[in-house]
Write a protein that binds this DNA or RNA. Structure first.
Length: 272
DNA sequence: GATTAGACTCGGCCTA
DNA sequence: TATTGCCGAGTCTAAA
């Protein structure tokens, strides 16, 4: 559940926990996540009341008031395959952490590949961990900030947008989709982009993410019935994962290439 | 030409 | 073989 849209959907799904207190938090697995939890980190959460959950890029920042009256923070990154499950209906060998809350609720952190992590610390941990991150998609200065970085380097627009210090929250799927929506070839050197193109990219990024969040949100409604993963699979992706299919705009075959070790999907006729 | 800082790419982390 | 992400190591490049 990796890119900004999925993280935001996850955040909204977790809001019912606000105001609840952690009875205890436990480790379910000996295996470390990307960052190992410090000894006693989970213990600090016992008796802590959850006051807010914020998102910055793909990071979730949880604000607690500790049992001793001192505020603390928990930072969660879902990596490639991390999920947070409220009152998980099943168990998995990939369940790593569980929080037991007042009023009987439980939250499970499940992560097959373990590229994600959970960290607990003092106030400011979340800010510290996201200090070098670029603007959020709904930041009015997004285009200006991205343009400044685009003019500096020599790399492709795809690589530029994938860089979290340039623009927060974008990943492989939504970068491919936003480039398709604006008709920009993914291998275009970033410094060649016109300001108008970057402004168009900003609009496309917002549109794609808004639709993805809406799709994820609506899929939560019928989640029980669907018994499937919300998000991508219900979202109408125009090019991502569609190599060999016809472009929805012109019918040209959608191509897949590798950039920075990641697959890029695009239409060579629509994107130049 | 040699040095250096910053930009950039790539492999590895994991599992199915 | 593939993969929604990220970071550190190593390489490249522009500038002084």
């Amino acid at each position: 559940m990796p890119e900004l849209a999925e993280v935001e959907v996850t955040r909204r799904q977790l809001l019912p926990l606000l105001g609840l207190t952690v009875a205890c938090a436990e480790k379910l697995s000996d295996k470390n996540l990307r960052l190992p939890l410090g000894k006693g980190d989970l213990g600090r959460l016992s008796g802590a009341r959850l006051d807010a959950i914020d998102r910055r890029g793909k990071y979730l920042i949880w604000h607690f008031l500790g049992a001793d009256g001192v505020p603390l923070e928990m930072v969660v990154h879902l990596g490639m395959s991390g999920k947070t499950l409220l009152d998980a209906a099943d168990a998995s060998p990939h369940d790593h952490l569980r929080w037991h809350w007042s009023q009987g609720a439980t939250l499970t952190y499940r992560d097959v590949r373990r590229f994600g992590f959970v960290a607990v610390g003092d106030v400011g941990l979340g800010t510290e961990m996201t200090a070098t991150m670029g603007p959020e998609p709904w930041d009015e200065t997004w285009a200006a900030q991205v343009a400044a970085k685009a003019k500096k380097g020599s790399r492709s627009v795809k690589a530029l947008l994938m860089d979290q210090s340039v623009a927060a929250g974008l990943g492989n799927i939504y970068v491919c989709e936003a480039l398709f929506a604006t008709g920009i070839h993914p291998e275009t050197p970033a410094y060649k982009l016109k300001n108008k193109q970057i402004e168009a990219l900003h609009e496309a990024v917002q549109g794609v993410l808004e639709r993805a969040i809406a799709a994820g949100g609506s899929s939560i409604q019928d989640f029980k019935a669907a018994h499937g993963s919300p998000g991508y699979f219900q979202l109408e992706l125009k090019v991502y994962g569609r190599a060999g299919e016809g472009c929805p705009a012109c019918g040209e075959e959608i191509r897949a290439i590798k950039q920075q070790g990641r697959t890029t999907f695009f239409c060579a006729r629509c994107q130049r």
